Amino acid sequence: MEERFALLIDADNVSAKYIKPILDELSKYGNVTYKRIYGDWTRPNSAGWKEELLQNSITPIQQFSYTYGKNATDSAMIIDAMDMLYASELEGFCLVSSDSDFTRLASRLRESGKRVIGMGEAKTPLPFRKACEIFTELELLLEDNMMGAAEREEKVGLHAVSGKETKKMISATREQVEEAVVKIITENKNNDRETGLGEVGSRLVKLYPDFDVRRYGYSLLSKFLETLPRLMLIQEGTKVSVALYEDKSRKEMVEEYILYQIKTSGENGIPLSALGNRIRLKFGDFKVRDYGFSQFKPYIQSFPEVELQGEGERTKAVYAPEL
């Protein structure tokens, strides 16, 4: 049975352009039972929301600003949330605001055993982010909603070539994430346990509530983890686990990573340009001449289980094990 959520939006701090990404993201967690938005609908700046309310069946809650500087919207939203907490059978709440005034509300809902998904713009203060079980930046949702798969791949490639991190505010650096995953794997190894990809994702969110692989230019956790030098992914059927590169030379690590990328690309293979970008992102100081070759193509061609197809920029590496 799907979990039931209440979606509560602070219209004073959130633009109407985010509504589709918000609803798409929340659908991943469960069924949205309540959809309410709070604001003073007599004000001109709320006009952008009115069409979206009709199209998405969101109930507007009117709150007049009786006193300058006092936020009546926050109070109404908090009161409604507490009423729902005691009177409704909900598993969770989605609080959409860039305002830290909802920090205590998020904490109180979690104290009552409810899941709290927070969403807000990049300017959202850290206390509210930390009070939520999961926090997602609206700019990331909007960008991801408008971007196709090919554009994501190109974006990742550009980051790989330039060596630059995303300019968005990141609470955890790539190095901090890698260190956290290494610690998780080590703890599990000490207890003779494997580390599943799902466990890594859930524990990273517990450590960093606003952790989101889209911050680093990826749409999948597995693709992001593959770029971290000390980590490797092992797939057995549908099961994916995360492990450490251990007791292996640099050459072995690079070759194993390359073969894994080609294998998992399927029968269509992977373009050499995309493969090169991924290698440089994973191993920042990778130079093909260190492996006895002057060019990348002959190096990949030297792998006995790899076949090159196509010409020029369209050349692809395909996994073709010898029979």
Rank of each mutant, 00 (worst) to 15 (best):
residue 3 E to C: 07
residue 7 L to T: 06
residue 9 I to P: 06
residue 9 I to M: 04
residue 11 A to T: 06
residue 13 N to E: 10
residue 14 V to N: 00
residue 16 A to E: 09
residue 17 K to V: 08
residue 17 K to S: 08
residue 19 I to V: 14
residue 22 I to G: 03
residue 24 D to E: 12
residue 29 Y to H: 15
residue 31 N to F: 15
residue 32 V to Q: 09
residue 36 R to L: 12
residue 41 W to L: 05
residue 45 N to Y: 11
residue 47 A to Y: 10
residue 49 W to D: 04
residue 51 E to Q: 11
residue 51 E to H: 04
residue 54 L to R: 10
residue 55 Q to T: 07
residue 60 P to N: 01
residue 60 P to K: 04
residue 60 P to R: 03
residue 68 Y to P: 03
residue 74 D to W: 00
residue 78 I to M: 02
residue 78 I to Q: 00
residue 80 D to G: 03
residue 86 Y to D: 05
residue 86 Y to M: 00
residue 90 L to A: 01
residue 91 E to F: 02
residue 94 C to K: 01
residue 95 L to Y: 02
residue 96 V to W: 00
residue 97 S to R: 03
residue 98 S to I: 07
residue 103 T to N: 13
residue 107 S to V: 13
residue 107 S to Q: 15
residue 112 S to N: 15
residue 121 E to W: 03
residue 123 K to D: 07
residue 124 T to F: 11
residue 124 T to M: 07
residue 125 P to W: 08
residue 130 K to P: 10
residue 131 A to V: 10
residue 132 C to G: 05
residue 133 E to A: 06
residue 136 T to N: 06
residue 136 T to L: 15
residue 138 L to E: 02
residue 138 L to M: 06
residue 142 L to V: 08
residue 147 M to Y: 07
residue 149 A to V: 15
residue 149 A to Y: 12
residue 153 E to H: 09
residue 157 G to V: 00
residue 157 G to K: 02
residue 158 L to M: 13
residue 159 H to N: 10
residue 183 K to V: 08
residue 184 I to A: 03
residue 184 I to Y: 14
residue 185 I to G: 00
residue 187 E to P: 07
residue 189 K to Q: 12
residue 195 T to H: 11
residue 196 G to V: 07
residue 199 E to I: 11
residue 200 V to C: 06
residue 204 L to N: 08
residue 204 L to W: 01
residue 208 Y to R: 01
residue 212 D to Q: 07
residue 236 E to I: 06
residue 236 E to F: 00
residue 237 G to K: 14
residue 237 G to Y: 15
residue 239 K to T: 15
residue 242 V to P: 03
residue 245 Y to S: 03
residue 257 Y to L: 00
residue 257 Y to G: 00
residue 263 K to Q: 15
residue 266 G to L: 02
residue 267 E to F: 11
residue 271 P to N: 04
residue 272 L to C: 02
residue 273 S to T: 14
residue 273 S to E: 14
residue 283 F to H: 13
residue 286 F to T: 06
residue 291 Y to P: 08
residue 292 G to V: 04
residue 293 F to M: 08
residue 294 S to E: 15
residue 299 Y to G: 05
residue 301 Q to P: 03
residue 302 S to P: 09
residue 302 S to H: 10
residue 304 P to R: 06
residue 305 E to N: 14
residue 305 E to M: 12
residue 312 G to D: 09
residue 320 A to P: 04
residue 321 P to L: 04
residue 323 L to W: 11
